[in-house]
């Protein structure tokens, strides 16, 4: 009796969340799919008509699309490389005994808490600006020509800014995982004469492998949709040199008002993200059972 009562109460308590998320998942996504098969431009209202796969064909054969796919991958892989390698190194460093460990930790975490638009603008103006930026001043100190980062290496600059924001995330998670490593195991390995390097390769790295996987997967989800950093620094340019898939869809929708084309692009982005999500969900699902 009582269990029946609690069970129906439980169902009632879960219902609002489920219904809201269901609506959030189905309604807009169904609309995007529907729009993606229409010829639909906001500048020409009332002219909507069924267009079959035209939008997809158009989007997939657009040279900007391939550039965007390349840039999306470059941002994801570039930032992952920097943050995972840097994160492991930093986590190992912060795990050592030192004076003022708490304060150093706080300093390292800080970039992750900065809103993306502030981070991007500060880097763009105060560091990467070829006239007034700090990097230009340092270059001049050494008698070098200041480098115009955002004009000459836009994609690399975006990667750098985003990596600065995500390095703390990787460090924090890897440090948390590192601290759960059994101290006795490390000592035992040391007793057996294992050097620092082999201890790292055979003991620490395997222990971190799960955390590294989590870092890679979660960051990938977020990095696939980097947007604000591109909007305020390069605006996708010069040309489409720093346009990723998210930015391309945004430009198609809100700058060119091409609802149909943008929707097709959005669906392609969803499919790409789902491939990554599939692996991430399996990872997290395993921890639920544990």
């Amino acid at each position: 009796m009582a269990t029946l009562h609690t069970r129906s109460a439980a169902r009632l308590m879960i219902a609002p969340s489920v219904l809201l998320l269901l609506a959030w998942m189905i309604v807009p996504l169904a609309m995007t799919i529907y729009f993606s098969f229409l010829r639909y431009n906001l500048l020409m209202p009332g002219m909507e008509e069924f267009a079959g796969f035209t939008n997809y064909k158009y989007f997939l054969t657009d040279p900007a699309f391939f550039q965007a796919i390349f840039n999306t991958l470059a941002i994801v892989l570039g930032v992952l490389f920097i943050t995972v390698v840097g994160g492991i190194a930093l986590a190992l460093l912060l795990d050592q005994p030192m004076f003022g460990q708490g304060i150093v930790r706080i300093l390292v975490i800080a970039p992750f808490l900065i809103m993306p638009t502030v981070a991007a603008l500060v880097w763009k103006n105060m560091f990467m600006n070829p006239v007034n930026g700090l990097f230009a001043w340092i270059a001049k100190l050494f008698g070098l020509q200041p480098f115009d980062f955002l004009a000459n290496a836009p994609l690399m600059s975006v990667i750098l800014i985003v990596a600065w924001q995500w390095l703390p995330f990787a460090t924090l998670i890897l440090l948390t995982a590192l601290q759960s490593l059994d101290e006795e195991q490390k000592e035992a390995a040391q007793m057996d004469g294992a050097g620092a390097w082999s201890r790292f390769i055979y003991l620490v790295l395997p222990h971190l492998s799960r955390a590294i996987t989590v870092v890679i997967l979660i960051q990938t989800i977020f990095l696939l949709s980097v947007f604000a950093e591109i909007l305020v620094t390069t605006n996708g340019g010069p040309g489409t040199q720093s346009t990723n898939l998210t930015f391309l869809v945004y430009a198609q929708a809100l700058l060119q008002f091409d609802v149909g084309g943008a929707s097709a692009g959005g669906i392609i982005a969803v499919i790409l993200a789902n491939i990554v999500a599939f692996f991430l969900m399996r990872m997290i699902g395993k921890t639920l059972e544990a």
Binding site: W24, I221, T246, V276, A277
Partner: peptide, 13 residues
């Protein structure tokens, strides 16, 4: 899984 959906996929609607 709803969190995994990229925002840009539903920007237009």
């Amino acid at each position: 899984s709803t969190k995994m959906m990229p925002s840009v996929g539903v920007l237009v609607p």
